[in-house]
Write a protein that binds this DNA or RNA. Structure first.
Lengths: 238, 238
DNA sequence: GAGTGGTCTAGACCACAAC
DNA sequence: TTGTGGTCTAGACCACTCC
């Protein structure tokens, strides 16, 4: 593996496990460069990642401050699949595949998935249970060019794991939009909505490393089971 | 200004205004290095920012692909103040300062703002109107150590602008949590909630460059007026 | 084989903080 | 004055894409 990534992972480990005792500061860049026997720029590359991910804050003239993360401040920025989320949760989770089919793209899908009308796309509808309650409805549409085959078993496990390890597709980035809607008839039928009169909808477009758009997803959550945690650095200013 | 930042801004401009015509590719790093008369590493630093901010996607062996941003894909990742948001919106906006006072920190605030119980903190409650509807309730608490003075006029304009330009405070990063709650009595009294039975709550802790926590905010939105747009790169994998 | 981006180096100079 | 992080350089080698 690349040196700076190895160092990054090692430093993540050491900052989160109090390797340096109760010190709130990382060793200096020069000191780390000696320790790892690399150039200072390589250390800086690793530290930049730590800062981006909210593990440290660099302060000019002083050093790198370790940011303590208490309790629920787990980092779920970035793209997270339900399986990744589920393994972080302490509650039992279960996935029900409600639909797995190939449909022809209509007008709406055409624009969302960047395919031609009537082109075949995978449609997957899954219900997510947490503690035996049906609280999330995931509707995925995949560009069929990238995924020749898809089975119920794969959908029950993790589509992302299949894409990355079997098909060697590299997910690169996503655009997400979070809004609140009134439940549709489908929401009411498939989810345990109880008295709730809203659903939180996360619409995502997911892109591969070569910038091709290959997935459009609507993840519809019961509002009381929705939480989004974000770590944001100040926007670049002129 | 630093070279790589100048180049970053210049390239943002050129990629968003079709400076290179309909080409979807940026010039190569070596070519850019010649053009700007800097080293390749400096160009790479600028390009890394462009990639982080979703303007380009770098593809190994090929080059940097310009990511086209259509219509509503404006980048509101990061910390955005209401004033910044308001200037982006096409609708008339207005701020009503409902409360501006110094209160003593209670148990709840103590943990959220990292101050001692009974220490004085600024409390600011503001109602945000969009198109003459009261749709957002902002409740801000500031550590008084950092802000000696605060007036109604500043709160009506932009507290952030005051902090950054007058007090020279440098906001660095924030932790946000988005959840959905049932409206409180206060929400019902101060907002035009109409029939809506939920509010979207964004809880933020805002930190300065030296990692001191100086603000805790709850921004309470009428659900139909809430939208959160995010650009996310894949989480680092091992 | 030529061109691209990805990694890494050794060294330089700067602005800033702490003493 | 010393140490810290921030910027910038010139050059090297690599893996990858495309022809």
């Amino acid at each position: 593996m690349e040196k700076y990534l190895t160092i990054y992972h090692d430093l993540v480990n050491k900052t989160t496990t109090k390797y340096w005792g109760n010190s709130t500061m990382l060793p200096s860049e020069n000191s780390l460069a000696q320790t790892y026997e690399v150039s200072r720029e390589t250390i800086r590359k690793a530290l930049d990642l730590l800062a981006q991910d909210g593990y440290i804050q660099k302060v000019r003239g002083k050093g790198s401050v370790i940011i303590s993360r208490n309790k629920f401040d787990f980092p779920v920025s970035g793209i997270v699949s339900f399986k990744e989320l589920a393994t972080n949760l302490k509650f039992p989770t279960h996935t029900i595949v409600n639909e797995l089919s190939i449909v022809k793209a209509d007008q709406k899908l055409q624009s969302k998935l960047d395919v031609k009308v009537n082109e075949p796309v995978w449609k997957v509808v899954r219900i997510r249970e947490i503690s035996d309650e049906k609280v999330i409805l995931d509707k995925d549409y995949f560009n069929k060019d990238f995924i020749p085959m898809l089975t119920k078993e794969i959908c029950e496990d993790s589509i992302y794991e299949y894409l990355e390890s079997e098909l060697q597709l590299k997910i690169s980035y996503a655009r997400k939009e979070i809004i609140v809607e009134e439940p549709t008839q489908e929401d009411r039928e498939l989810l345990d909505l109880e008295h709730h009169s809203n659903v939180v909808v996360i619409k995502s477009r997911v892109y591969l490393e070569d910038t091709s758009l290959f997935q459009y997803t609507e993840s519809r959550h019961r509002p009381d089971k929705f939480q989004f945690v974000d770590f944001a650095r100040r926007v670049r200013n002129g």
